[in-house]
Design a protein around this nucleic acid. Structure first.
Lengths: 119, 119
DNA sequence: GCATGAACACTTTGTTCATTA
DNA sequence: TAATGAACAAAGTGTTCATGC
C-alpha cells in the first residue's frame, strides 16, 4: 500500500466529475481546476491533466471526439478534444470512485492521526 | 507547491515525536511505526526511516550516539544508534513541525474537498 | 495565445543487497 | 535474527519542447 493517494488518481476523480457535468475538453478543465485549487496553492500541471485523461480513455471509461472550437471555421480553426462516457463508462467510473473513496478516507485517517498525535 | 505531503516529511514528524519521548533507535522506531500504521494498511519502509533519521541529523536537529544494546557484552554485541536532540534541536524541530502542520492542513483541505465535491 | 501531446529530466520512493566483531 | 546502511531500480511527477491553428 502506497503512502498517500497519487496525484493522478486524485485528478481523475475531478475529471470524471467534470465530464459528468459536460465540461468538455482538456485545456478548459485544466484552467477550471487551477482555479479550484488556487486556495490550496496547488497548481495542477498540464501534463498530469492530459495523462489522467488518456488513462481514463485507456481504461475504457471515457472516449474522445474532436471538434472545432468555434462555430465559424473561417475565424476559429482550433481543434479541441471532447470527452464523454463510454457505454459502461458510468459504471466503471462509479467503481473507480468507490476505490478512490476508500483511499481518500485512509489518507484522511493518516493525516488526522498526525495532527492528533503531534499538535 | 507539491501535490501532497511527502512520506519523508510525514515520517520525520513521527520520529521527532519519538525522540521527544526518548524512544531510541531506528529499528525500534520502525517496528513501532509499523504497529501504529497497521490499521491504515501502510507499512513504512525501512529505508525511509533511516533516510529520514539521517536527514534530521544533517539538518542539525538530531545527533547520534552508539551503544551496545544489552548490558552484558558477552551475550549481546549488537550495536545500536541512539538519537537525541542537539542543543538547538528542539527549537529547530518546533519550527519544522510548524511547517509540516501547515502542509498537513493544506492536504486535509484538499482531501476533504475531494470528498465533499464527489461523494 | 489556445490546445494537445510527447520527451526528457529529476525527485522520491521501493527493493534488494551487504555488513556486523 | 536484530540492526544499520547503501546500491540499485522503478515510479511518479515537473519542466521543457514540438506542433498546429
Amino acid at each position: 500500500m502506497a503512502f498517500m493517494i497519487a496525484q493522478r488518481a486524485y485528478l481523475k476523480l475531478f475529471l470524471i466529475g467534470m465530464v459528468e457535468k459536460r465540461k468538455g475538453y482538456g485545456y478548459e478543465m485544466l484552467e477550471e481546476l487551477k482555479e479550484q485549487f488556487r486556495p490550496f496553492g496547488y497548481v495542477p500541471p498540464q501534463s498530469e491533466i492530459y495523462r489522467a485523461l488518456h488513462e481514463l480513455v485507456q481504461e475504457g471509461i471515457l472516449y474522445r471526439t474532436k471538434r472545432l472550437k468555434g462555430n465559424d471555421p473561417s475565424i476559429d480553426f482550433q481543434e479541441i478534444v471532447l470527452y464523454h462516457f463510454t457505454e459502461d463508462g458510468v459504471t466503471k467510473a462509479d467503481l473507480y470512485k468507490k476505490q478512490v473513496k476508500i483511499d481518500l478516507d485512509r489518507c484522511l485517517g493518516m493525516l488526522n492521526k498526525a495532527v492528533h498525535d503531534h499538535y
